[in-house]
Design a protein around this nucleic acid. Structure first.
Length: 701
RNA sequence: GGCGCGGUAGCUCAGGUGGUUAGAGCGUUGGAUUCAUAACCCAAAGGUCGGGGGUUCAACUCCCCCCCGCGCUACCA
């Protein structure tokens, strides 16, 4: 912590290449990281910025099945899409790599072997579902069955998408393989585990003690929660045919766990960067600083030298991997540094609801770029002013429009335009010279001088919203200066004075060209072209004499244009339409279960019962303890409906009950039967009641 | 239920280690102005800082309880 850092390694979460990425991802990790890195570069820091596509894991083959294609086709498609979007949005990676590249496979295997050879991994044999027909172990995702929680017959082995429960394959009722449709069998399999619990003392010391002050509360709190909950060994391998082979002799059919290989991808990308730069064959690398003297092995400095500051930009869903698992891997390997900070952001909601690609409630990067191809900076700005830095935030199209019209156009664009237009009008588009300075002038120049360091300290503290607000405030200083000095009035009487004022206004614009660079790189470029200045350093910003008197200005197009209401309404409508389309597309989701005989059916004794009593269960959020008159008897049934029905509401209701289901203890109480419920699309439950009152015990057939 | 993060003006959000009249932007209202994409600039109104206790000379800021939102986690036959 007290180390003096001489170089930076900045990573942005590797986007998972199973689909497009939306603007919430941009707000979470990408835009903040890009601002940070661009700023570091302007201050002359030694920094590399790495990212890339995360292309392994079970969801990739899963997506391939959905799209009826191959895993390779999926990653190629989405890598290209995401890569292109990042490029158009100005993400300034030194390399955007791919985890499917050979160098990454090599790096990951080396990393795994290093841990293995040191005896840092434990072997464990456990029972996993195996598909005897396809002859493979089934990843959680490939097993479907009836959800034990909500009864959805197509719940996945890791999660029920209907009710959102986290599941394990063993919990599924009537599990079946999605590969063959057969019932899988349990078979023993061996895996290698990282015993996280061994590192609890180290984690406590490193995070809870050393980083209490400098890590964000949300990040620190998450880590604390995980550490105090008790860490457990985590499997670092999977039975799967898509991924990086486990580099051991007895590991046929096993690959590295995607969360083992993905963060190692940062290291691979760094290696690839230096390899490509030194070989002169740039495939993925787009170095932003001069690496002409770099050596192939220089990647090690960025991952192993104690004076390198490693920073991971991620969204809050990745905290455990970047703050616990990956650091443990780095630490225990004995060769690598651990992150100095992980400034994770929270989530950005959209128009009042959670952003979700699968539910169709999202603005995907490519969708935005298709509709606003000339406005990457507007999106960057709208996101920057509303980053979920301390809590979930919200993006609305109306706010987007307001940020563009009221701030980018009215404050920043307008100021630059005023200064330039006045210069054209009175000085033939050449920078006039400064004469005698008045108090107003001096005050403006003093303020100008203060802003760059103000913005810088906000950036350094990962407070990008604040930094962005300060940036706009500098443009306000310019507008206010013009309003106070009114050069258009003096033009009739005192041209020296007008020249001085416009000189100062243009100097402010020149500084804006510098300080906007991290935030609005495209605008910065335009502004520099307009003012005829070259690439300047951050330290030049605030200088009141950047532009030389007599220098000619170039053509001055408007930096931003207003966005009209109609265009915003189209977007809102598009969003709603997309959600509807996705809902409709998902409608025929439930194929019929396998055929059964009448005898099978008659085994079930389903009746109408009446709820006599209902009470909440202590320490349970979901359970109600019900007394049900089944006609045969009055019995106790535990039912997971507390989140949908208040106890007083269900009393007296007639419900459908399966009465001959084997009793089972739940929360210490024996449940004798099961209340049948209809689970709606949104996961809400409805009771199945007869259309008219019947005698309790009436049989359903 | 447990753990974590939040609950501050109409809206989106800031408010290290407690201290005079609680801030910003947008929105609203009024004024001034016309160089500028009817933009800019000035000013005002607007908040019991989720609720209730407590510690303190003093709490948005510390402690306890409760309520609400979000995340992780357990119970869902």
């Amino acid at each position: 912590m007290s180390t003096t850092f001489t170089r930076y390694t900045v990573t942005a979460a590797l986007p998972y290449a199973n689909g497009p990425k939306h603007i919430g991802h941009l707000a979470g990790a990408y835009i903040p990281s890009d601002v940070y890195v661009r700023y570091l570069r302007l201050t002359g820091k030694d920094v590399i910025f790495v990212c890339g596509s995360d292309e392994h894991g079970t969801a990739i083959p899963n997506q391939a099945l959905k799209e009826n294609t191959t895993s390779k086709a999926i990653i190629d498609k989405y890598d290209a899409l995401i890569r292109d979007c990042f490029n158009k949005l100005g993400m300034s990676f030194d390399i955007y790599h791919r985890t499917s590249e050979p160098i990454h496979h090599q790096t990951s295997q080396e990393f795994f072997l290093a841990l293995y050879n040191k005896g840092l991994l434990t072997e464990e044999v456990s029972e996993q579902y195996f598909d005897t027909e396809a002859n493979v172990f089934l990843a959680d995702r490939y097993i479907v069955g009836t959800c034990p929680r909500c009864g959805n017959t197509n719940a996945y082995g890791d999660q029920c998408e209907n009710c959102g429960s986290t599941l394990s394959p063993r919990e599924l009722i009537n599990p079946r393989s999605t590969l063959s449709g057969k019932t899988p069998v349990l078979r023993e399999t061996k895996h290698w585990y990282l015993p996280l619990e061994r590192y609890e003392p180290w984690l406590r010391d490193w995070i809870l003690k050393s980083h209490q002050q400098d890590w964000k509360p949300n990040v620190y709190g998450q880590c604390k929660s995980w550490i105090e909950a008790g860490l457990q060994p985590r499997a670092m391998t999977r039975d799967l045919d898509w991924g990086i082979k486990v580099p051991l002799p007895d590991a046929e059919g096993k690959v590295l766990y995607v969360w083992f290989d993905a963060p190692v991808g940062y290291i691979s990308a760094t290696r690839a960067l230096f390899e490509e730069v030194t070989s002169g064959n740039l495939k993925f690398a787009t170095p932003r600083s001069d690496l002409s003297k770099a050596k192939k092995e220089d990647w090690k400095k960025y991952w192993q030298a104690e004076d390198t500051r490693l920073i991971h930009f991620i969204g809050k869903d990745n905290i455990v991997f970047h703050c616990i698992i990956f650091p443990v891997m780095l630490h225990t390997s004995g060769e690598f540094i651990v992150p100095d900070n992980v400034p994770a952001n929270e989530f950005m909601n959209l128009e009042g609801d959670k952003m979700s690609t699968s539910r169709g409630w999202s603005i995907e990067m490519h969708e935005y770029l298709d509709d606003f191809p000339d406005k990457p900076d507007v999106l960057r700005y709208a996101l920057l002013t509303n980053l979920p830095e301390a809590k979930d935030s919200e993006f609305t199209w109306k706010d987007f429009q307001a940020k563009n019209n009221n701030e980018l156009v009215a404050i920043l664009g307008n100021f630059v335009n005023r200064a330039v237009v006045l210069t054209q009008k009175y000085f033939d588009n050449k920078v006039p010279s400064q004469k005698v300075l008045t108090e107003v002038d001096k005050k403006a120049l003093e303020e100008l001088e203060l802003y760059p360091s103000k913005i810088a300290s906000s950036i350094e503290a990962f407070r990008f919203r604040e930094a962005t607000a300060n940036l706009m405030d500098l443009a306000r200083v310019g507008n206010k200066y013009l309003a106070e000095t009114e050069p258009w009035k003096l033009a009739k009487t005192d041209m020296d004075r007008v020249g001085t004022i416009l000189n100062i206004a243009l100097q402010i614009a020149a500084s804006l060209a510098i300080v906007t660079e991290p935030f609005l790189p495209f605008t910065s470029r335009k502004l520099k072209n307009m003012l005829g200045v070259s690439d300047l350093a951050w330290s030049d910003a605030g200088n009141g004499a950047l532009l030389k008197a007599g220098a000619a200005l170039n053509e001055a197009p408007l930096l931003f244009e207003k966005i009209e209401d109609e265009r915003i309404e189209i977007q809102i409508k598009k969003l709603i339409d997309k959600k509807r389309a996705v809902e409709v597309a998902q409608q025929p989701a439930e194929p019929a279960k396998a055929e059964i005989s009448f005898d099978d059916f008659s085994k079930m004794d389903i009746r109408i019962g009446k709820i006599l009593k209902a009470e909440r269960v202590e320490k349970s959020k979901k359970l109600l303890k019900l007394q049900v008159d089944t006609g045969i008897d009055v019995r106790t049934v535990m039912s997971g409906i507390a989140e949908h029905f208040a106890p007083e509401v269900v009393i007296g209701k007639q419900v459908t009950i399966l009465v001959n289901l084997a009793p089972r203890k739940i929360m210490g109480v024996e449940s004798q039967g099961m209340i049948l419920m209809a689970a709606d699309k949104d996961g809400s439950l409805k009771m199945l009641s007869p259309s008219g009152e019947v005698v309790p015990g009436s049989q359903v057939s």
